[in-house]
Design a protein around this nucleic acid. Sequence first.
RNA 1: GUCGGAGUGGCGGAAUUGGUAGACGCGCCAGGUUGAGGGCCUGGUGGAGCAUGGCUCUGUGGGGGUUCGAGUCCCCCCUCCGACACCA
Length: 803
Amino acid sequence: MSYDHQKIEAKWQERWANQRVFNVTEDPSKPKFYNLCMYPYPSGALHQGHIRNYTFGDLLTRYKTMRGFNVLSPMGWDSFGLPAENAAIDSGLDPRENTEAQIVTMTRQIKQLGAMYDWDRELASHHPDYYRWDQWLFLQLWDRDLAYKKEAPVNWCPKDQTVLANEQVVDGACERCGTIVERKNLAQWFFRITDYADRLLDDLDQLDEWPDRVRTMQRNWIGRSEGARFTIKVAVSNLSFEVFTTRPDTIFGMTFCVLAPEHPLVDSLISGTDHEDEARAYVAQAARASEIERMAEGEKSGVFTGAYAVNPINGRQVPIYIADYVLMGYGTAAIMGVPGQDQRDWDFATRYGIEIIRTVQPLASWEGEAYLGEGETINSGFLDDLDQTGAKQRIIDWLEEQGIGERTVQYRLRDWLISRQRYWGSPIPMIGCPSCGLVPVPLDQLPVLLPDVEDYAPRGQSPLASAEEWVHTTCPACGGEARRETDTMDTFVDSSWYFLRFTDPHNDHAAFEPGNARYWMAVDQYIGGVEHAILHLLYARFITKFLSDIGLSPVTEPFSRLFTQGMITLGGAKMSKSKGNVVDPLELFASHGADSLRLYHLFMGPPTDDAAWDTNGVEGTSRFLDRVWRVVTETERFDGDPDRDLVAQAHRTAKKVTEDIERFVFNTAIPPLMTLTTSLLETARKGTDRETFDQVVEILIKLLAPMAPHIAHELWERTGHDSMLALEPWPVWEADLVTQATVVMVVQVNGKVRERIEVAADISPEEAERVALGLEKVQGWIDGAEIHRVIARPPNVINFVVG
RNA sequence: GUCGGAGUGGCGGAAUUGGUAGACGCGCCAGGUUGAGGGCCUGGUGGAGCAUGGCUCUGUGGGGGUUCGAGUCCCCCCUCCGACACCA
């Protein structure tokens, strides 16, 4: 018989909400715990990934509450973004109405899961009272020269006539229409995150409760390289350019130079020369080609400019090429070509017949490719015989003495491109004035409201541009006619500070009150998908550091502990609507109940790992809950004796479950609860006394409360308690009961298990040896041979080495 | 290519410090309950062999090594997944 989960789940969801069990205020008398699941995009329907995320989060909220913490667990909506806009374009749905309807639906579904949040703090980034503070944040950055506008190459879809974010470009093509993406120069807004590169990198060391792989990914993304930057003169001209290198020690091996096709010097180098036509054709082709095409070509391509560069170290003249393997966005967009010590330069030199000079003596014979290893410097004048470290030091000193170069640090990280030629986002609060230039919207005029438009389809510029009345405004500086910025902000701006807003969500005169933030920050546990390991987490760290610098954030790192969950797969692929392999949580709420589904998500495997879906597994956890139900509702006999073993088992279970939750591993916390339930059912048949039984049942219900809260609360009530289980203290265990008196010891002969024997847990090595040697089977295996060694590790194992 | 992560029964997985490999669940098999089915209960379930109420061998992607003892530690290789992807 199975219990009526629909009825009891609805009952308790209503009670928790009515009694405001999970609504919190700042309370200095209690330790605080800020527990946060990454706020979702309101897609309109929960999928299993959400269920998994909120099940983990809710388990922690409930567990920490029972442990006596003041737990803040808020929920909100990352409600700006492309899907709502695409729905508007494709189906004519109003983005605002559509988004808000989806929020209503998803809120209902989250409540059906029994996941509890402080809904008084709910926020949605598309609300003017939220995005007003995005705009405020933008202006704070602008005031400190950390927001700027400049021309930059962007991904451009020629069919959709729009700019695409990097993540919308899949294999070099537009994610929506499949057209090959072009690169195009457009004036864009940036945040100067590179100013924070060092701090973002260095502070990763503090985040020792983040997964290593996430820290590694961030480290690689920031990509710090130490090296030198120096000036190279162009022969027979007064032109020069700068190069960056991590291997200044190889400067004597420079046999050519390369400029990126977009390098500003290219034009003056080739104008009016014999090489002009060929070079211009190459530059044009590089501009047209997508990244994918550039790479797919396999071999490195380039073209000679006709000009020569002068190596400052020895005056030697080397040819200057243009090649697209040198990137405009990194370093100085120009390099010294040292084929002997760089594989890319080697490939290029080999193709174009350029001389190769080795400047490092390989440790072993080495041919056919560049040598990147250690070795003595050779063919390098005054650097000869030095090792790499010494040679680098020496040459940088020399460059600095000559006043042509310096030691420098280069990052792979680029500034954050935040403007989008899109409708459904926070308008950038700037005004373009013909006489004053770029002028910020005064703070007292925020928010700049998103205007209504007729047509959301991209036409090569932001849809906001079509709202003529809105665009036309007056310049705050001179009062003349001016035009508003029509780009909106990347939604990653919204999510880069929402966790601070949750500490003071209704503030209408500031983004948040520093006092509230001081109580709640940092987020003690942040839970979400690993797909946000780089961008969101990096941006959030950046903005938090910035807000700390201007005295508003109490912390320099927003998330103390990060947990990234694995994804759900079915048939070997990630569960997704487009692949058609989704299992709808709503159907499972109806058929098995939220508790069974939650328990299955906890049980199916390590929370960090990807997990393969199996609906039969929900059947299994559902059966388990039926058994728990029967323990309480069908036990009638209480005519036996107190059962100390059962109590001991309950205490061991409490210890194990607590330890597993603390280390964030849930799949191993459930088996002991299952076996405890089986023991209770056996005991119920056998008979015990009422006191023992009630005591053990109480522990079981409490341990189950964070995992399967509805059934746990119902059984708590049915076992005669008036209190709210969610606010009851977590079970404690007695150390004496947890330690077992006897254990099974393994007896090995020559490392092979030959016998098992039950012994006292505190047996001495001598006693263990005596007992083991007394065993008939062990004697049979020793078979009269000499015992060379006895390794006794009581009470687990004893091993006789014979032979 | 570089950097991460992972390979254990038919399946999901367990084994936290080197010490009983396969906990727990699913699936499957047998028996019980039932008019039948479902449900529930009990037992079994890595592989091979045999003198089959038990015993022996073998077994954690492959190959070597360290150790009394290796899923766990070291070296080499293979496969899969993820991130970055010409970063000078």
